[in-house]
Computed example of a mutant assay.
Amino acid sequence: MAQSVVGWLQPAGRDLRERATTDDVDAERAHELTRVASDWDLARYRLSLVQDAMEHYDTWGSDPASITP
């Protein structure tokens, strides 16, 4: 499921940025599209953190030293 979400997030940000650069989009709408694309990027990044935590849960849970700076 996580992979399908990542696959869904990637085109969303790229498509919004492409749409923001078209001639028929005014500056205000382009700004909004770019902001939403950035929100998608942040969601994708946060999802990657969750995936990493899930993949390494056993390691990090059994060895507290593995998560200390």
Score class of each variant (00 low, 15 high):
residue 22 T to R: 15
residue 38 S to K: 09
residue 22 T to M: 10
residue 13 G to M: 09
residue 4 S to A: 15
residue 28 E to M: 05
residue 22 T to Y: 00
residue 21 T to C: 02
residue 51 Q to I: 14
residue 64 P to K: 11
residue 26 D to L: 02
residue 67 I to M: 06
residue 42 L to I: 11
residue 43 A to V: 03
residue 8 W to C: 11
residue 25 V to D: 07
residue 21 T to I: 00
residue 39 D to T: 02
residue 61 G to W: 06
residue 42 L to R: 15
residue 69 P to Q: 07
residue 47 L to T: 01
residue 61 G to V: 01
residue 9 L to K: 13
residue 39 D to K: 03
residue 66 S to P: 00
residue 46 R to Q: 15
residue 6 V to D: 02
residue 45 Y to F: 11
residue 20 A to K: 04
residue 30 A to D: 06
residue 67 I to V: 14
residue 20 A to F: 04
residue 2 A to L: 08
residue 48 S to Y: 03
residue 29 R to G: 03
residue 33 L to P: 03
residue 59 T to E: 15
residue 38 S to I: 01
residue 39 D to P: 01
residue 38 S to D: 14
residue 65 A to D: 15
residue 36 V to G: 02
residue 43 A to E: 02
residue 36 V to S: 04
residue 18 E to A: 03
residue 24 D to N: 12
residue 23 D to F: 05
residue 30 A to K: 06
residue 8 W to K: 09
residue 15 D to Y: 04
residue 51 Q to K: 11
residue 6 V to S: 06
residue 13 G to S: 15
residue 43 A to T: 03
residue 20 A to L: 05
residue 12 A to S: 11
residue 16 L to V: 06
residue 41 D to E: 13
residue 17 R to W: 00
residue 54 M to E: 09
residue 16 L to M: 14
residue 42 L to S: 15
residue 38 S to F: 05
